[in-house]
């Protein structure tokens, strides 16, 4: 085999994949801190789909979502020390970063209006189902069931805040509810969701 030989590259890829395939979040991030691009690739392989899915759902724009994904993984590369494996999974860390960055973009001037225009157009075309898009995972049924245990007002408050990127004040305005009520519903709803998910046997948290 010669340098640049595709078969050698494939072999190397397989070896690296095996090296990190069973690695914990913490081990992957430590390897990233050692400038191991293969470790970043493994983090990307595991989580990029979820990161992109959340960014796209929030922004409703492929290009902006891709930019957010790029930012999130570059941040992990440049500053892996921010991830603390004792405080949650790498996925929740990456998704929290993704959500925060997407909300920043969304709250920037004009972005939300453009999103609403896109959503209206996509809804009119009948090819964009926000509800169904989220549930593509093994525990989807249990998560859906847990959500159904919430009151409609709790569920709306959480969905508008999380997927809409609205502040609780904006959610209150949209729902015509007092701000304090919405604030409490978001908190109580999240707590109840956790209880329901744990009771249903869904693993919530814990480093992989």
């Amino acid at each position: 085999m010669t340098a640049g030989d595709p078969s050698r590259d494939r072999l190397r890829t397989e070896v690296v994949r095996e090296e990190f395939a069973d690695a914990s979040d913490a081990a992957i991030v430590v390897a990233i801190a050692r400038y191991r691009q293969e470790a970043l690739a493994e983090a990307y392989r595991r989580h990029a789909g979820a990161v992109f899915g959340l960014a796209r759902r929030l922004l409703a724009d492929q290009t902006m979502a891709e930019e957010v994904v790029q930012e999130v993984f570059l941040r992990l590369w440049n500053d892996p020390g921010r991830f603390d494996p004792e405080r949650g999974t790498l996925r929740s860390y990456l998704l929290a970063q993704t959500h925060g960055r997407s909300v920043d973009v969304l709250r920037s001037e004009g972005a939300r209006r453009q999103r609403e225009e896109r959503e209206a157009r996509q809804t009119a075309e009948g090819g964009y189902d926000l509800e169904l898009e989220v549930w593509d995972m093994a525990a989807a049924a249990k998560v859906r069931e847990a959500l159904s245990e919430l009151s409609l007002q709790e569920r709306l408050a959480i969905e508008l805040a999380y997927f809409g990127g609205f502040t609780y004040r904006e959610v209150a305005e949209r729902l015509g509810e007092p701000e304090g009520t919405v604030k409490s519903r978001i908190r109580s709803g999240l707590r109840r969701l956790r209880v329901e998910l744990v009771a249903a046997g869904v693993t919530v948290g814990g480093a992989s």
Binding site: Y44, A50, F52, G53, T89, R91, M137
Partner: peptide, 18 residues
């Protein structure tokens, strides 16, 4: 952290990155 872990489950999408 508990709230964020719950949000992680809500956020999950099984699609692939582009």
């Amino acid at each position: 952290q508990d709230h964020r872990e719950v949000a992680t489950l809500l956020a999950f999408s099984g699609g692939a990155a582009p």
